[in-house]
């Protein structure tokens, strides 16, 4: 893999827990890679699988979704819904030739700044090992 490949990772963060967790990581100066483009959503359950496919289609090398821990969702069942969608998304991506490790769902609470940093580090490294996805170019053939 190219040494200076810096993966682009789109992260959908629920505003109630995970986004706050990410914020905390920032304010407490916990180090984590700058590869993540965070997108604030109301709830992990609001992440339509369309967003995930679109992120990949438009050039993301990895996609991360973070929500509140089971039982803690501000809308009760948003994260349970996502919990059912995520393995389906992985499965479809795999069938389309996109490695499973490029997509991940994690629970991060408002107080887990360190955990957020850990998760971002992991996915960044895993995606770095897989190399660039380049779906934009792949898509180009069928413009």
């Amino acid at each position: 893999m190219s040494e200076n490949f810096e993966p682009r990772i789109v992260a959908f963060l629920c505003r109630w827990c995970s986004y706050t967790g990410a914020d905390l990581a920032g304010t407490s100066r916990i180090k984590y890679p700058a590869n993540v483009v965070p997108i604030k959503v109301m709830c992990s359950g609001r992440v339509d699988p369309t967003f995930v496919l679109k992120a990949f289609a438009d050039g993301a090398d990895g996609v991360l979704i973070c929500g509140c821990h089971p039982g803690d969702c501000h809308y009760d069942i948003g994260n349970y819904n996502m919990q059912k969608r995520a393995p389906l998304i992985s499965k479809l991506l795999k069938e389309m030739g996109i490695e499973e490790k490029r997509f991940r769902l994690e629970w991060v609470s408002a107080s887990e700044g360190d955990r957020f940093a850990e998760v971002v580090k992991e996915i960044t490294e895993e995606v770095r090992n897989l190399g660039p996805l380049n779906w934009k170019e792949i898509k180009e053939a069928v413009k």
């Binding site: 699988p49 496919l53 919990q83 969608r85 389906l88």
Partner: peptide, 18 residues
């Protein structure tokens, strides 16, 4: 906009398990 994406949600919504 994408049938596959929509179906992922639809399929997930009928699964009876947490």
């Amino acid at each position: 906009s994408d049938i596959g994406a929509k179906m992922l949600s639809a399929v997930a919504s009928v699964i009876d398990s947490n």
